[in-house]
Simulated scan of single mutants.
Amino acid sequence: MLVIVDMQARLLPHLDGGERLAGRVGTLLRAAHLLDVPVVVTEQNPRGLGGTVDALLDDIRTATVIEKHTFDATLAPAFVAALPPAPATLWIAGAEAHVCVLLTVLGLLRLGYRVEYVADAAASRRAEDRAVALARAQQDGARLTSVETTIFGWLGSCRHPRFRDVLALVR
């Protein structure tokens, strides 16, 4: 399952590399859709931060969208209810890397999930905060990965029937 955290309209313009982040997350979402990988999207206090950024709305059409008010999404019962049983592997990306993404990663690890933190699809307002978040996640047991590694891992083989469609996303 792919977990996308808080890619919201009023937050992204303030992030270091926010536009690039939206592109990387969009690529993950399109690949997940092509490969039937289930997706959960969180929105932190959408009345205050707005909903998911417009650029990703088409990409989340089949996702489960969870409104939350906790920084750690695992403290929101609807989020936990949307997850497969542990110890499934969850890929996580979004914003901000050092707050909601990191705290959710730590919560998922406590619940017994295997967590792949998609490092090039996570951002914070300050690059230093993102770096600390990645180090902390790794120290606590998450594995760092990238968008392309994630996508090719989902594919498994160049013989996959959707290989050419997915390859077009990363070129």
Results as ranks from 00 to 15, higher is better:
Ala142Arg: 00
Gln139Lys: 09
Glu148Leu: 02
Leu108Arg: 01
Arg143Phe: 02
Trp154Val: 01
Val115Lys: 14
Val105Thr: 09
Gly107Leu: 12
Arg136Asn: 10
Leu106Tyr: 05
Ala133Asn: 03
Thr145Cys: 04
Tyr117Ala: 14
Asp140Asn: 14
Gly156Thr: 02
Cys158Tyr: 13
Ala142Ile: 00
Gly94Asn: 03
Ala142Met: 03
Ala121Tyr: 01
Leu109Gln: 03
Glu148Tyr: 03
Tyr117Met: 09
Glu128Ile: 13
Thr89Ala: 15
Gly112Met: 08
Val105Ala: 09
Ala122Leu: 04
Leu106Asp: 01
Phe152Asp: 02
Arg162Ser: 08
Val132Lys: 05
Ala93Phe: 01
Arg164Glu: 09
Gly141Ser: 06
Leu144Pro: 00
Gly107Gln: 05
Cys158Phe: 10
Asp120Thr: 13
Ala123Met: 08
Gln139Pro: 01
Glu116Val: 00
Val101Met: 13
Gln139Asn: 09
Ser124Ile: 06
Thr104Gln: 14
Ala127Tyr: 12
Trp91His: 10
Gly156Phe: 00
Val115Gly: 10
Gly94Ser: 07
Asp120Gln: 12
Gln138Glu: 15
Ile92Pro: 01
Leu109Pro: 13
Ile151Gln: 07
Asp165Cys: 05
Arg164Met: 12
Arg162Trp: 06
Val105Gln: 06
Gly94Arg: 01
Phe163Ser: 06
Leu111Gly: 09
Trp154Phe: 00
Phe152Gly: 02
Leu103Ser: 13
Tyr113Asn: 05
Gly156Leu: 03
Gly107Val: 11
Thr145Asn: 15
Ala142Phe: 01
Leu134Gly: 07
Leu90Phe: 03
Ala127Gln: 15
Tyr113Ala: 08
Ser146Glu: 14
Val132Phe: 03
Phe163Asn: 08
Arg164Ala: 12
Ala93Ile: 07
Ser124Ala: 11
Arg125Asp: 15
Arg143Asp: 05
Arg125His: 07
Glu148Pro: 08
Ile92Glu: 00
Thr149Arg: 11
Gly141His: 07
Leu90His: 04
Gly94Ala: 05
Thr89Gly: 12
Arg164Gly: 06
Asp140Tyr: 15
Arg136Cys: 15
Thr150Gln: 15
Tyr113Phe: 09
Thr89Tyr: 12
Ser124Leu: 10
Val118Trp: 07
Gly112Asn: 08
Val132Trp: 01
Thr145Pro: 05
Arg125Ala: 13
Glu128Pro: 15
His98Cys: 08
Leu102His: 03
Ala121Gly: 14
Thr150Met: 13
Arg162Asn: 04
Phe152Ser: 02
Leu102Ile: 10
His98Lys: 06
Ala97Pro: 12
Thr89Met: 14
Ala135His: 07
